[in-house]
Design a protein around this nucleic acid. Structure first.
Length: 847
RNA sequence: CCGAGCGUAGUCCAACGGCAGAGACAAAGGACUUAAAAUCCUUCCAGUGCGGGUUCGAAUCCCGCCGCUCGGACCA
């Protein structure tokens, strides 16, 4: 055994050995499926990957030592635009670019020593994978859950493709390109996720091991509102104007109706004398960007259409307006204006002089007309005909009931969630397996003709429409149904489709006959532990849940939720240097430090140093490879796990990395001194042996418990503590010391697998440490004969004494009262109460 | 504006309602060395953002405020 720790010698050796790991099989052991969100093959791992994958690797290795049959796979989310851009910019085919990147990143993953089931590796772009993506799409089609619809869609002008609603942020920017999206009318493919809105919402309640905030985000995204759809009769329209409201109890307070400017009724009901003004208003709203339109600080604007509808409850005529604050996409695209009890309506009505009516009185009766603000709380109905006197929740029910009887409307639930637009006008994606036949219409490609492969010989000449749309040879196809000349769909699928089922494919990754066998998914799924970034809280996680439920209903799966336990890891930050005036970032090699202040090297501009998320644009990324070549994989892994709890932000620190390296050096030293006999066998007392054994078993208890609870930072601290105790111990060969040496090597192995394997071998053990048993906890070793008893008087600590652990409460009180320091505070006072916390403290309450 | 989370030594982080310190980094001093690095030893540092409440006892539970982070915001 070498005297000193040298990761560069041991890591390549161990990694080579792991290449030959036996393949996984289903067996009688309990299974454990640990999964990190698979990466996009950009070409280089970043620190976020290292953090993410280190977490699942520790959990997998730990679970394996605990006797579980562990599945810990990896793959590549390999379709997507960067590959296409590389083709345009550098003339390299997307397939080849992707392949090269995967090879490079696979090598990097291996250098980090992650224990993956490599025989199950998948890449979503490969035909053996996307064939099954297409097959599953056809399952959706057969279930009536995939359909084409013409509508206004989000268009990303930079990436030249449409986007799903989830992929556009609150400011109207694309999640990928950051460009402001435009609205375009197009006919596109959708998946009917709204059919599952209620179950996706309800089942959040079963995800007890998900972070609260992810559940809340999904709940908000689904956005359930319970209310009613009411119809307001208007001349010439048999259906009337249908509005959706969550406050049917305020229907007696309606003083106007508002349509979204895009609403199809606008044109039909506008009176001739209002036509010009209405058309001008609609044109103006159309010309505005999403941002302008939804910005809240601008006044709500509208114009009357001249039309008048009837409030069926009151028989009153109410004017119909159009206004920019009503969204066409939500509800029915029309609302009833109740300025007395809706803040937006109040603002609008005040601006345009529309009447404001009180129909819900506050519970204390304090409201009087004219109202100074909208009252939106619960109250008692007034000015509401036969419903006067009802509290507003009851009023809601009764009014909906009455509307249903009269045929004026019905109770209805509305969701914010919309169907998932999956068409993308790009080349590097999974082709949608559909054919358009002039005779038969939309025809699915039959199973035996799958996969619909991407044509290889394609020219990528600048951005613009998808190259597929120009490939006449590829597009032309015989109709699978009637054989007539037909045309292929040229759009590809959103890449989130590829990732909505990859965790299922891992259960049976080499199945050539179907996406996965029922037997394999029944055994391996659901994923027991999923780990990834919070940025997928809605997109990927919601889509995957949707897929799971649909495939369950198609009989392909037998469970309801794909991910049992979820951990969202925090970001990795590092120091960035920015000029506060221009917000320009400087790379570290252009920054100079003088007396703790920072200056730009070229011109001496003072800079601010701040912890920010690692990114190329801020020049503060740390390449994992440089850490690997300097300190090795075990140090890098230990650092990202130790520095912060996994769900929190992680601040990069070179000094702390070195600290982890020295810790591994110290553990090496501990084992070396034992093996070499350099630390001699000095005589130790039984009590010393018991004390050291207690430390050893405390560490065994804590490390296991902490891993189960994701507390890797404190688990590693416990290892450090044990190593410190060993270093301080006089004997280097006693039974307890030997037990400690074995324990520390095993406990360390899941975190730092290379050094773990090496030290195990140095101890003369032949087997693989990573498949050996986790050290057994001896509860009796934890028992203490004496404890430190803290004595408080009136809650303040006054003394601490050593007492036998077995002492009774009465004895403890006697010990406490015997203390000089305590007597000073109790003498001459009556003891009113004594509180004993067993094994810890005694509190004397005197007065 | 609404919602959630977080504020503990110089820094990162610990602490079932029970001694504020497990662990680390940094700093200082020392040992080793011709010297430096590495290594080892020793030392230093907060009363838990602020104000109240509950309790025998509060970093921990409750209320209000301040600050930071994240998410959602005209969804009728």
């Amino acid at each position: 055994m070498e005297t000193r720790y040298n990761p560069h010698a041991i890591e390549p050796r161990r990694q080579k050995q792991w290449e030959e790991a036996p393949h996984l099989a289903m067996d009688g052991r309990p299974k454990f499926y640990a999964l990190s969100m698979f990466p996009y093959p950009s070409g280089a791992l970043h620190m976020g990957h290292v953090r993410n994958y280190s977490i699942t690797d520790v959990i997998s290795r730990y679970k394996r030592m605990r006797g579980f049959n562990v599945l810990h796979p990896i793959g590549w989310d390999a379709f997507g635009l960067p590959a296409e851009n590389a083709a345009i910019d550098r003339g390299i085919h997307p397939a080849r670019w992707t392949e090269q990147n995967i090879a490079q990143m696979r090598d990097q993953l291996k250098r980090l020593g992650f224990a993956y089931a490599w025989e199950r590796e998948v890449a979503t772009c490969s035909p053996v994978y996307h064939r099954w993506t297409q097959k599953l799409f056809l399952e959706f089609w057969k279930a009536g859950l995939a359909y084409r619809k013409a509508g206004i869609v989000n268009w990303d002008p930079v990436d030249q493709t449409v986007l799903a609603n989830e992929q556009v942020d609150a400011e109207g920017r694309s999640w990928r390109s950051g460009a402001l999206v435009e609205k375009r009318p197009l006919e596109q493919w959708y998946l009917k996720i709204t059919d599952y809105a209620e179950e996706l919402l309800q089942a959040l309640g079963t995800l007890g091991e998900w972070p609260e905030r992810v559940r809340v985000m999904q709940e908000n995204w689904i956005g359930k509102s319970v209310g009613a759809e009411l119809s307001f009769p208007i001349a010439g329209e048999p259906e009337g104007i249908r509005v959706f409201t969550t406050r049917p109890d305020t229907v007696y307070g309606v003083t106007y109706l508002v349509l979204a400017p895009e609403h199809p009724l606008v044109e039909r009901i506008t009176t001739p004398e209002r036509r010009e003004a209405v058309q001008a208003f609609v044109a103006r709203v159309r010309s505005e960007s999403e941002i302008e339109r939804v910005s809240e600080d601008r006044p709500k604007q509208g114009v009357p259409t001249g039309a008048v509808a009837l409030n069926p409850f009151t028989g009153e005529a109410v004017p119909v307006w159009i206004a920019d604050y009503v969204l066409f996409e939500y509800g029915t695209g029309a609302v009833m204006g109740v300025p007395g009890h809706d803040e937006r309506d109040f603002v609008f009505a005040s601006r345009y002089g529309l009447p404001i009516r009180l129909v819900v009185q506050a519970l204390d009766g304090s409201l009087a007309e004219p109202l100074r603000a909208a009252y939106t709380e619960v109250g008692v109905l007034v000015n509401s005909g036969p419903f006067d006197g009802l509290d507003s929740p009851t009023g809601k029910l009764k009014i909906v009931e009455y509307a249903e009887q009269q045929g004026w409307g019905k109770g209805r639930v509305q969701y914010r969630l919309r169907d998932w637009l999956i068409s993308r006008q790009r080349y590097w994606g999974c082709p949608i397996p559909m054919v358009y036949c002039p005779e038969c219409g939309v025809v699915p490609v039959p199973d035996e003709q799958l996969p619909v492969a991407l044509p290889g010989d394609v020219e990528f000449s600048g951005r613009g429409p998808s190259p597929l749309a120009k490939l006449e040879d590829w597009i032309r196809v015989d109709c699978p149904q009637c054989g007539a000349p037909a045309r292929r769909e040229t759009d590809t699928m959103d890449t989130f489709i590829d990732s909505s089922w990859y965790f299922l494919r891992f259960a049976d990754a080499r199945n050539g006959a179907e996406p996965f066998s029922r037997e394999a998914v029944d055994y391996w799924l659901p994923v027991d532990q999923y780990v990834g970034g919070i940025e997928h809280a809605i997109l990927h996680l919601l889509y995957s849940r949707f897929f799971t439920k649909v495939l369950r209903d198609r009989g392909l799966l037998g469970f309801d939720e794909p991910f049992k336990r979820l951990l969202t890891q925090g970001m990795v930050l590092s120091n960035a240097f920015v000029d506060p005036a221009t917000k320009k970032y400087y790379p570290p090699d252009q920054v100079e430090e003088r007396d703790g202040e920072f200056f730009a090297r070229p011109d001496g501009t003072p800079l601010v140093c701040a912890m920010e998320k690692m990114s190329k644009s801020k020049y503060n990324g740390i390449d994992p490879l440089t850490v690997l070549s300097e300190y090795g994989a075990d140090t890098a892994r230990l650092f990202v796990l130790f520095k912060a709890p996994p769900e929190k932000e992680l601040e990069w620190s070179d000094a702390d990395v070195r600290g982890q390296y020295s810790f591994l050096g110290r553990v090496w030293r501990t084992v070396y001194e034992f093996v070499s006999g350099e630390k001699p066998d000095r005589t130790v007392s039984e009590a010393q042996e018991r004390d050291l054994r207690r430390e050893v078993h405390r560490a065994i208890q804590q490390v296991g418990g902490d891993i189960e609870q994701y507390k890797f930072n404190t688990a590693i601290a416990a290892l450090m503590k044990l190593n410190n105790a060993m270093a301080d111990y006089p004997s280097g060969q006693s039974p307890a010391y030997k037990e400690g040496v074995y324990a520390i090597v095993k406990l360390l192995a899941p975190f730092a697998p290379h050094i773990g394997a090496e030290l195990w071998q140095a101890l003369g053990e032949a087997g693989d440490i990573h498949t050996s048993d986790w050290p057994a906890l001896d509860e009796s070793a934890l028992v203490e004969e004496t404890i430190t008893l803290v004595i408080q008087v009136n809650g303040k600590k006054r003394d601490d004494i050593q007492v036998p652990a077995a002492a009774s409460e009465g004895e403890l009180q006697e010990f406490a009262l015997a203390s000089e320091a305590v007597r000073r505070h109790t003498d001459g006072k009556a003891i009113k109460k004594v509180i004993v916390v067993p094994g810890r403290l005694i509190n004397l309450v005197v007065g």
